[in-house]
Structure formats: structure tokens, C-alpha cells
Design a protein around this nucleic acid. Structure first.
Lengths: 324, 324
DNA sequence: CTGAAAGCGCTTACAG
DNA sequence: CTGAAAGCGCTTACAG
């Protein structure tokens, strides 16, 4: 059996109240008593049970993170930063991979509520889900609007889309196509598309956007794009994985990059930078996004509801590689 | 305030014992009572507090996962599979990114113990850490020996190393070099190196292995390799990220792949397959590794200590792409 | 079929 | 400076 606070008390020859006080460093305790208690704890290898503490305190220091899939480098890196920041602040992270499935998301959310998490960070496509608000749970969303009451943190999608498109124009591309996720999702990432379309129109060009669905093979759509627009000489893909697929298709068709086709992605994760360093991309400040999201979440947890912006868009950075 | 079981009982007009029985579907309860209770729960939006349950049951259904860094596609994908399997079995996952730092690992382990996890899955480089055994905690390791008592699950590293080396030989490479992590770590991944060296010797070749340290820029070591062995025409890298760096360096030097240099990696994650589909690699069955590790962990948790192998090496698969 | 009581391992007023 | 008691939200013998 695991030792409990009473075992420690018995060995130290004090009451469990005193042991608790030593543990929490609260109230006045004589040095001698402290030492006895510490020695006893070490002797029997005692670790306090956080379940019991949390039950009493009504505070678990537990944060839930719902992402589509940590296999995707962007979410994997986001999870890393969020977890690291949480750990440094004494919070623990419950990881949930929703695969963007609404049924899974609902189940996870209920699980998190049952486990009394102090707050939830959500990267999800599904809106209006299971009373995110009804439970008066602290929630922060990353790159997705969930409701009027849930703050959103993300990168400057409009600025990023603008930079990407302008870069392709500046490099002399005549026929620029954009690839993005489904427009129905109404994510801030749609701003990348809107920026593309705005810039194109500004320059008197016709914007053309192809849609791919998340977590699905993009190859088919991309192949169609090449078939329908053989003149394409610039592609702005709304994430790096799509950009990589474009590069692969281009190679397959013997279309040289960057001379015949220039490609810009979006995300700029560490992994992609190592694996495909030549990819030109708009890099999101993933660490900053994580930091900001946690900041806002903790403010909510502490009961401050007006001390943070409802929307935060952090600056992106153009990483120019060989694909432009 | 969140409603508790007594609130439900009051509304349903029964005792909290009865509510608990309905919740746990234990003992005999009349249909009428059940309905009343369910209605009451819904009415006040009641969710049971798993903290209190766990405290009583001495079972949290919580699993800890310690990995170096979920930004790395291999660990990100592993975390995805482990979490998914856990979720399907009613377990929840506490994510820990150790960055391979022993101090962080120790802190995480203590955190997990305090949170009463039922078991821990560990992917770590540090051996003999904080009484992994002393706490009689259920533990399973992935791809790393931790101690005589901790079961290990991984891919068939020797077989994979053999396949990779033999492929390069078969393709006619005359001068094959291997890149691996530090030998001191004594991970099963060292078997990839041993396999390479064995095969080389079998064929009367001189094995040459360069070492890179994890989570550090590999470019320097790789550059040195190219300088010191300009004749190199085959490289077996012990993971895909190293392989990608080799490809980048090769491009930089104008050495054509695959005509002048052939490259084989190891891991074969989904992400790398999308981002760099042309990479020839030895693919680990990450889903199977996750499944097997959880199986073994759950057996330990259930008290079966002899019903599983101490070491499990799952079959790998050669994915041949354009780099060979 | 249902309820009162004790207890899981803690912490915090309240006394002293 | 220290301890006895009550309670966090559950569950499970034990009665009835």
C-alpha cells in the first residue's frame, strides 16, 4: 500500500494536521517538527496524493488540450509548447486527439469535465458543440471561432496570406492558384484565402482557390488543379503539408521548381524546416501562440474575464527557401 | 457551484447511495427510480466527479506518457496512437515532454506518481532514474532499456538496419556510411548500427559510423562526413530527420541523389511520407508498437506480471522511394 | 429494491 | 506552535 499522510504523522510523532502544514508550508511550524516530518516522508517514500488535494481545493491544475491529431507536425509542435508552458507553471496536460470528429470531441469534453480540468485549449473545427459555455468551463480556442464567448488566438492569417501572394507576384508569377481547406469551416485560416483573393484582385488577377478537406489525401485535388490549369506558375498552399504534396506532384509531372512553378506554404514548423528546408513558407509563431493562449486561459481560470482581448493574431514571418 | 450527487438525490427524491448505484449500474434498482435519477442528472447538468471516484477506487484510469518532444513527427505520431488506444479503452493520457533531460524526467515522474497514474509509458534516454521500480509503478518502455524489470517494445531494429544496408549494397553502393545517435545511450536503436556493421563486415566492407546527438543540429556532423569521405555513395541514417539533413547537404554540394548518393532513413512516419515522399526508409509499425506497449502496461496494471514478453520487436517495412 | 454510515487522503477553520 | 473534527464528492459493505 502507498503510505498516506497518517503514516507520515505516526512516524514523525505528530498529527496529520501538522504534516499537512509542513507539506503546504502554511502556518507556524517549529524547525524541529519540520525536520522530523521531512525525514519521515523520505523514510517511507511518501508522495502526497494530488487527487485528494484537488478534491478538497476544487482546483486540479489540470488543463485539457483537444487537437485534431498530434501526428501532424503543426499540432505536435503546438502540443509541445502548450505542455511545456503548462509544466513550467505547475499545470498538467491531458492530451486529446479528436481527428476533427464531433462525436469524439464531445466525448473528450465530457471526460475533461468529469476530470475537473481547470480549463481547456481547443483546436477544433466543430462549432457550437456541447455547451462549451453552459458548463462555465474556461476555454480558449486556437485558430477557430467557437462562439461569441470563447477567445481565439492565432497567427496573422490575413497578413500571412498577403505576404505569400505578394511574394509570388513579385517573383513574376503570372498564374497564381491558392489551395485551402473547406470554406464552410469559417476558421480564421480562411483569412489566408481572403488575403490571397484581395491581393489578386488588387493586381487585376483572377483568384482561383481549390479546396481540400483536412485529413484526406490531397493528391487527387492537386492533380486536378494541374490538369485544369496547366499554365499555373505559382501556388500558395494554406499549409506546408499541402505545399509538400504540390511539390511532389510537380516533380512527378516534370515541372521544375522554382523555374516553372513557385510554391509557398504556411506553418513553418520545425519538423518541416528540417525535412524540407527548401520550402518557402509563412511561419507561425507557434510558441507565442501557445504562450498567449495559456495566458488567456489562466486569466479566465483566475476569474478575470475582461482582461484579455477576444481575438489575438500574432505576427508571422516569411521564410524564403528554394521553392520560390 | 457544480452540482454533486446529493443535489441529484434531492431532486430525484432518493438517497445519494441510490444515485451512485444508478451511475454505476450496480445492484438492483427499479426502472422508475432509474428514470427519476437520470432525469434529475440531466436537469441540473450533472457529471460525476472522477476525482472523488478515483480517490475511493484507488484507480484513476490515468496513464502518463513521457516522450522527448512531440514536435518530432515520430513522437508526435506515437503520442497520437497511444492516446487513441488509451481513449478507446477508457484511459486518459497525461502528456510529458522531457526533452531528454533527466531533471525534467524526474519531475514528471514525481508529478505522475502524485497524480496516481495507473501506469507510465516511457520513451527516454535516461536509465536508472528515480526508482522506476521502487514506486512499484507499472511501466513500459519504448525502444529503450531502463532496467531489468521494465519491459521494452520497439521495432525490429536489427532487421531494419540489415535491410537498409543490404539495399544500399544491392544498389551497388561502394562506400556506405552510417549515421546514428550516441552509442552510450545503449538503446535498442543501436541495433540498427550493429546490423549495419555486421552486414558491412560480411561483405568485406569497412563500417564507418558517425554520431549525432539528439535534438541538436546535425548539419555540422554531416558536413564533416562529406568532407572526410567525399567518395561516399550510400548513407544509412538512423532516422528520417537525419536522412533529410543528409539530402539537404547533398543538394548543397551538388551531389545528385540517387545517382551519386543513395540515402535510406528510418521511422517512416506519416508526416515524413507526406513531406518527403521520395525518401527511402525503414518504416516502424508505430501503431502496433503503441498497441503492444499499452497491452503490456495494462497487463501489469491488472497484476499479471508474467504474461508478457520482456522484449518485443515488431516487424519493419522497407519503403522504397526515389532516394535509392 | 433502498438508505445511513464509514471511509478514500487530503486541508482548513477552530480551539487551545 | 499543534491537534481533533468536519468535509471535498464519491462508493461500498451492512442493514433492512
Amino acid at each position: 500500500m502507498k503510505p498516506n499522510i497518517h503514516d507520515v504523522a505516526k512516524i514523525a510523532g505528530v498529527s496529520s494536521t501538522t504534516v499537512s502544514r509542513v507539506l503546504n508550508n502554511r502556518g507556524y511550524i517549529s524547525e524541529k517538527t519540520k525536520e522530523k516530518v521531512y525525514k519521515a516522508m523520505e523514510e517511507i517514500n511518501y508522495f502526497p496524493n494530488d487527487l485528494a488535494r484537488s478534491l478538497f481545493n476544487k482546483r486540479t491544475n489540470l488543463i485539457g488540450l483537444i487537437i485534431p491529431n498530434s501526428s501532424n507536425p503543426f499540432y505536435g509542435e503546438l502540443a509541445f509548447h502548450i505542455e511545456s508552458i503548462c509544466a513550467s507553471l505547475g499545470y498538467k496536460l491531458l492530451l486529446c486527439n479528436s481527428l476533427n470528429r464531433i462525436d469524439k470531441e464531445e466525448k473528450y469534453l465530457e471526460m475533461l469535465i468529469r476530470n475537473q480540468v481547470d480549463g481547456v485549449v481547443v483546436v477544433t473545427y466543430n462549432r457550437g458543440i456541447l455547451n462549451y459555455e453552459k458548463q462555465n468551463l474556461s476555454v480558449v480556442a486556437i485558430d477557430h471561432y467557437l462562439s461569441k464567448n470563447i477567445p481565439v488566438v492565432g497567427s496573422d492569417n490575413y497578413g500571412g496570406g498577403k505576404q505569400a501572394t505578394e511574394l509570388l507576384l513579385m517573383k513574376g508569377c503570372q498564374y497564381i492558384v491558392h489551395i485551402n481547406g473547406p470554406i464552410e469551416l469559417q476558421t480564421p485560416a480562411n483569412l489566408r484565402r481572403i488575403a490571397y483573393e484581395d491581393v489578386m484582385k488588387e493586381h487585376g488577377r483572377l483568384p482561383i482557390t481549390y479546396e481540400v478537406s483536412p485529413h484526406q489525401n490531397h493528391q487527387e485535388v492537386i492533380s486536378k488543379l494541374f490538369d485544369e490549369h496547366p499554365e499555373v506558375d505559382g501556388i500558395f498552399a494554406s499549409d506546408d503539408l499541402i505545399a509538400a504534396s504540390v511539390i511532389a506532384e510537380s516533380k512527378k509531372r516534370g515541372k521544375d521548381i522554382p523555374t516553372q512553378l513557385k510554391v509557398v506554404g504556411y506553418d513553418g514548423t520545425e519538423a518541416v524546416q528540417v525535412i524540407l528546408p527548401e520550402l518557402t513558407t509563412i511561419q507561425q509563431p507557434i510558441d507565442l501562440i501557445a504562450k498567449t493562449a495559456i495566458d488567456i486561459l489562466l486569466k479566465q481560470i483566475e476569474g478575470e474575464f475582461n482582461n484579455f482581448p477576444f481575438e489575438t493574431y500574432l505576427p508571422v514571418k516569411l521564410l524564403e527557401g528554394g521553392t520560390t
